[in-house]
Amino acid sequence: MTGQGRLESIDITRLRWFVAVAEELHFARAARGLGISRQRLSGTVIELEEELDTKLFVPGAQPTQLSEDGQAVLEEARALIAAAPAEPVTATEAVDRLRVGFVPGVTVTKWERIWADRFPDIRLELIPVPMKEQESALRTDAVDMCFVRLPIDSDGMSAIPLYREVPVVVVPKDHPIALFEQVATVDLADERMQDATDLDEAAMTMELVAAVSGAAIVPHSIARLHHRKDLVYRLVTDVPETEVALAWLVDRTTELVEEFVGVVRGRSQRSTRSPSGQQANKPAKQQSPAKRKPAPAKKPAAAAKSKQGGAKKPGKRRGR
């Protein structure tokens, strides 16, 4: 079995993570307490077992059980951790959740479902954010990431454009424009246009359109979000589209942020561009030549032929 001297060469953070699993005897709970993904924690334990050339946990045991070697390593690891200086808490270890904001009109249910399936032990908090606060929510750490409408100040910010939204004009149901499938701004020249630049007040804008028989141009998703039976909306062909993006601060690019980017971009769970995929796709440690079992010797051709019953004797026929 390994001695404490060999453990001294192992990063103290990895030892802390192993001790967390050994004390909880539950990978999901330990990962939640550490604020990391279960996949990353499992990968770290596997690497540790390979480095120490032993099994720290009983393979296949339910619930999780320490092996004899694992119990010995646990005692030695505790001693090393107790003697080590206190570690600063990193951004990843400080939280066990990911906070994602979204501005009006953005639907996040699909990504929420994928995240829940892929990372059931890491809480995803979805937080509605007024559009006028989308940037301040990120810069004041109210959220870790946010679905925003561009443009946004790019200083120190990462932003992944996701999709564009067509503009529509909202009018009363009995309005002449309701007869068309699409219109141009010239067709709206004589209309009483309501100011719809503040999308956070879109519900009030719709009230005004219905009350005074006016019109308002908004992104398609906003018209759907505030749909009313007495209003209809039609495509406007010559107004610029709006663009929705996923944004976060560059210096707060944590592992969970990278995982969520992978979810939104449609990467598979085993994608090597995501931290958990890198762990899952890491090649298994090859067995050293000294430990490989010799291949079984091939049987002589004659013996193999005899085992199969040999050749048929000439002249002998089978009866029916």
Rank of each mutant, 00 (worst) to 15 (best):
W111A: 14
L25T: 10
S221F: 12
S37V: 03
R14Y: 12
V108N: 11
T2S: 11
V143H: 02
E201T: 04
L80I: 15
I114P: 03
R113G: 05
A247I: 09
E87P: 05
L225F: 00
P300A: 11
Q194H: 02
T13L: 13
P283D: 07
K299M: 10
R40V: 03
M193H: 01
P167I: 08
K316I: 12
M145Q: 13
Q134E: 09
R118F: 01
R228C: 08
V100K: 11
D69P: 09
A295F: 12
F57D: 06
Q269L: 08
F119W: 05
L231M: 06
Y233I: 04
S158Q: 13
A211Y: 04
K173H: 07
K293M: 05
M131F: 14
I222E: 01
D121A: 14
A30F: 05
D69R: 14
Q71L: 10
T54M: 14
R113H: 11
D153I: 13
R99G: 00
V250M: 11
E75P: 00
S67R: 08
R40Q: 14
K293I: 04
V171C: 08
R273A: 08
V264S: 06
V171E: 02
D190K: 13
E191Q: 14
P59S: 01
V95S: 12
A211K: 14
K229M: 06
A20W: 03
R192I: 09
A77W: 00
L25W: 05
P63A: 00
A284I: 06
A290H: 07
T205P: 03
D187R: 10
P151S: 07
P283G: 09
L235P: 02
R270F: 07
G70L: 10
T92I: 06
A22S: 13
T54Q: 11
Q65D: 00
I177G: 04
E51T: 15
V212L: 02
I10P: 06
L249T: 06
M157A: 05
H26I: 02
E258P: 01
A116T: 14
K293S: 01
K312A: 12
G43A: 12
R318I: 07
V21I: 09
V170C: 13
S268E: 15
N281S: 13
E258Q: 15
A302R: 15
S213W: 08
E241M: 04
R118D: 02
Q269Y: 04
E201S: 07
F147H: 12
L98H: 12
R317D: 00
V244A: 10
L98V: 11
R40N: 11
G277L: 10
D153N: 15
V257T: 09
V168A: 05
H220A: 11
F119I: 03
A203G: 03
R78V: 00
E241G: 00
V103C: 09
V166P: 03
V106T: 12
P120D: 04
E258R: 15
A159Q: 14
V183M: 08
I46N: 01
I217W: 03
T44E: 14
K173C: 04
P161S: 09
G35F: 12
A211L: 12
A223D: 02
A216T: 09
Q4C: 08
R228P: 08
K299Y: 01
D69G: 03
R164F: 03
V186R: 15
V103G: 05
L34V: 09
R320N: 10
V171I: 11
A211D: 12
R273C: 00
